[in-house]
Amino acid sequence: MVARNTSTCSLLLNLFRLHRSSSVNFSFDFTDGQQQLQEAARKFVAEEVIPVEAKYDKNNQFPWDVLKKAHANGFMNVTIPSNYGGLELDMVSSALIYERFGYGCTGICTAMLANLLAETPLILAANDEIKKKYLGRMIEEPLMASYAVTESCAGSDVAATRTYSEKKGDEYIINGSKMWITNGGVANWFFVLTRNNNDPKTPVSKAFTAFVVDADALGISIGKKEINMGQRASDTRTITFENVQVPKSHIIGNPGDGFKIAMKTFDTTRPLVAAMATGLAARCLDEASKYALERKAFGTQIANNQVQLLIREQ
């Protein structure tokens, strides 16, 4: 009898705790500010991106005109902290922007997103002097930046990176090659992930060091623009480092922290890549819906046909 009462009491207590923990308000509504920037992005994309996106895709050109306008309107580099001149937008607000630009053109959106990808490790781990220098200039001018991590044999397996940085006095010497680098040919600076020693036994959490490197540093060779199937407005290239000298002050975080920093960066940028994909999906849906309400086959708009029927016809 006593045991039963005790268990009943603890059950009720647990229910009460559960109730309390689930009483936080859940909402899908945006704030007024978020709605406003979503509307501003929608308008900008409808008037400045969509009318020209096919041209850039056809010509395989980097969309400088559009990016300069996007920069002037505040849509680029939105996560830079306010004490370096940025807007310091939250993740939801940033996702709204990238979803909308993804709706317009993922080639142009990718160029903007590569800036965020390059800036995020600096925001997370760079010293104040580096932040002022490299993040500050992104606000002042419409510059591009680049996240140089992927290599010919190390994409998803970031730990297989072979680009090597060797300490020499107060400098590091970088040698190696990076591949599929977005904004590689138009970047003002690169975030570069390097291996700091060749001992295979060194744990991943200590084996890499990250740097910020000016694109015009001696020893950097930028390859030809890669011709890809999609997102052709985006600039994607191979970058080669031959005896590139980088001062110690340009290390991002501490020596050995490179892998951790690169991974933490993705916590911020991956939702934005997803938002861009969602934007593209929304565009596909809108275009298909519009066409399905216009095109007639077998005496009626094709929107009136069941989708399964079309699949069967294949």
Partner: peptide
Amino acid sequence: RYATLPNIMKAK
């Protein structure tokens, strides 16, 4: 003109 993002923030 467009409502730029910095001005949207300041307008609050």
